[in-house]
Design a protein around this nucleic acid. Structure first.
Lengths: 339, 339
DNA sequence: CTGAAAGCGCTTACAG
DNA sequence: CTGAAAGCGCTTACAG
């Protein structure tokens, strides 16, 4: 249409330069007019370019199996897009160990990936790492946790504050006046785990917004995650607060509290996070009443897709993808597991 | 590797015949050995074949806007796979009118589609229609409702019985003894809408399984969906049952009951189905406590993908895809809307 | 700055 | 029954 060769059209489409101003304008005009979009199939077939994605997330075998799920979602996505010729490298780190993180982060940079999928769970270390990504021109997608002030390509995860707010609503359903609630933070690094703090905040906000609900909230921090220590700490709390009608655990480690309650034969409303395998039996037997789910599989899936869209298909989606906050009970558990 | 031409390899890969037994075996052996899988990209690029999908679902502008959502999901899927050269034709029918359905169903057959995405909401008519699909060799995917005994390619939707069961659990949270519950079926064709009956069943099952909960369930059927008639019927019910503490509406028409309750300034626990626009303001203002969602967008999305996988990519997924039963409240509404 | 040519991994007539 | 050739819509050197 423009009276130029297909090679020239290719140069303007991909802004590879070496085109005279006149030709450039002429071609661009026609591209606009006929809404020309290059065929992705033909393009990736002809292009010899291979992409390398690096996935930098916590270990799947620490004291909670949470990180298995995002991995499942990533593998699903990678299988679907296998024909685009993408190489993926997984790098896992200990989420409580900055040294382990830095080691893997350096590896990531050295492999010169085209894109990075990254869970920035350690705040300070993540900020530092991301600097060298920017220096090396490596675009990165955040999943699970967000650091708003950085220049990430996309964030995929939950609104943590709102999830705590929801938990409070579920906690308060049919509650009797004068009830006491125990909030149990179980984490080695509570100050560094910002999303846990946000969940606490949301939980408290709810009761501030609903002063009519007559409850008393007591919070304890358990900084050692092993079961004996948790049992001991809970025992002390029950001595101190006599009238506990509900427990909120703002992390996937709710199964540790469930283990204690089961042992003590206490039936108290219990709400926690995440459909990890350790929590399932307690949801089934009624020890845990509600689990709030972060859609971890989708986090992984859409994380990979965000990289694909940016690097391969050249079309970006939403910058922040807030996933729905799923409520899981004994009664709807089954189909969340199968899906 | 087999010492034959690429044309011959193509013949055995796609079982197009015209290959001698010896060559066939030789090639198949090597295909196995090297795990040869034809490149989908190159394949669809070279193939001039275009696919035609027909989408046969109810109108989006009847007395509930439910069917907009699956349409959204379908369009999302179609946009993603646009490079595969697929033509889509939408045929809508009035879900309460068998004649309208048959008219569109005939059109569907006449357009000789390669695949059909279909919501079999009218039981008898659907069974009849599907027969001619089979005669014409048209594979079909069910969404939203299932007819188990037919030979569908895939079903994508919810376990209706279990969703009613879950609704009952939510209804009973913190309920006082001696409560009365009203179940309100609003449908012109309750007997033909099997999934509504299944939801009723599940709801009742829960209380049978939990005899400790002291409630009384009363069911009314409202066969005319206009608001005045609904108001009138509810008025009568409230005269008859004095102690109603909860209302369950096993369909998206829960907003009609909410409208009545608002008008009468009654605050009663209200549970219904589907995040349709008519229900949203009532969830926000607290008139509706819980909505059970069927993931309608996903129904449409995965419906299209099931056809793509079967016809284009030649790899089938699960036959029955039961979607999770989402619980939606005022507090987690926002991110279900955005997602 | 521009065009012609080869090639990506397939499919599809066509000739024998 | 089998192979050679053209072509799908691009990208990528290469020559000028």
């Amino acid at each position: 249409l423009a009276g130029v060769s297909i090679g020239t059209v290719d140069r303007v489409i991909h802004q590879r330069g070496q085109v005279s101003g006149d030709t450039l304008k002429k071609v661009m005009k026609i591209v606009e007019k006929v809404h020309f979009r290059p065929d992705v199939l033909a393009s990736t077939l002809a292009s010899k370019k291979k992409f390398r994605f690096i996935i930098l997330i916590p270990d799947c075998h620490d004291d909670s199996s949470f990180w298995k799920a995002p991995l499942t979602g990533m593998k699903k996505a990678i299988a679907e897009i296998s024909h685009f010729g993408i190489e993926t490298i997984y790098l896992h780190f200990d989420q409580f160990d900055p040294v382990s993180f830095q080691h893997q982060a350096n590896k990531a940079i050295r492999s010169k990936p085209d894109g990075l999928l990254f869970a920035p769970v350690q705040y300070l270390q993540s900020v530092e790492f991301v600097k060298s990504c920017t220096e090396n021109n490596i675009p990165y997608v955040f999943i699970n946790s967000n650091i708003e002030e950085l220049d990430y390509l996309s964030y995929i995860g939950q609104d943590s504050i709102q999830s705590g707010y929801l938990a409070a609503k579920l906690m308060s359903l049919g509650f009797v006046a004068g009830s006491e609630i125990l909030v149990v933070n179980i984490s080695k690094q509570i100050a560094n785990h910002r999303h846990i703090l946000k969940r606490n905040k949301g939980f408290e906000n709810y009761f501030e917004d609903h002063p009519g609900i007559d409850v008393n909230i007591n919070t304890i921090n358990i900084e050692n995650t092993n079961q004996e220590y948790v049992d001991h700490s809970l025992g002390k709390a029950f001595m101190k607060f006599k009238n506990i009608n509900g427990i909120f655990v703002p992390s996937s480690r709710v199964f540790k509290v469930a283990t204690y309650l089961d042992k003590m034969k206490k039936k108290i409303r219990l709400i926690g996070y995440d459909l990890i395998e350790e929590n399932i039996p307690f949801l089934e037997d009624g020890t845990i009443d509600f689990l709030i789910s972060q859609k971890p599989v989708e986090q992984g899936y859409f994380g990979i897709m965000a990289l694909l869209n940016h690097l391969v298909l050249k079309k970006d989606g939403k910058k922040n993808l807030y996933l729905p906050i799923d409520i899981i009970t004994k009664e709807n558990l089954k189909y969340y597991l199968e899906y």
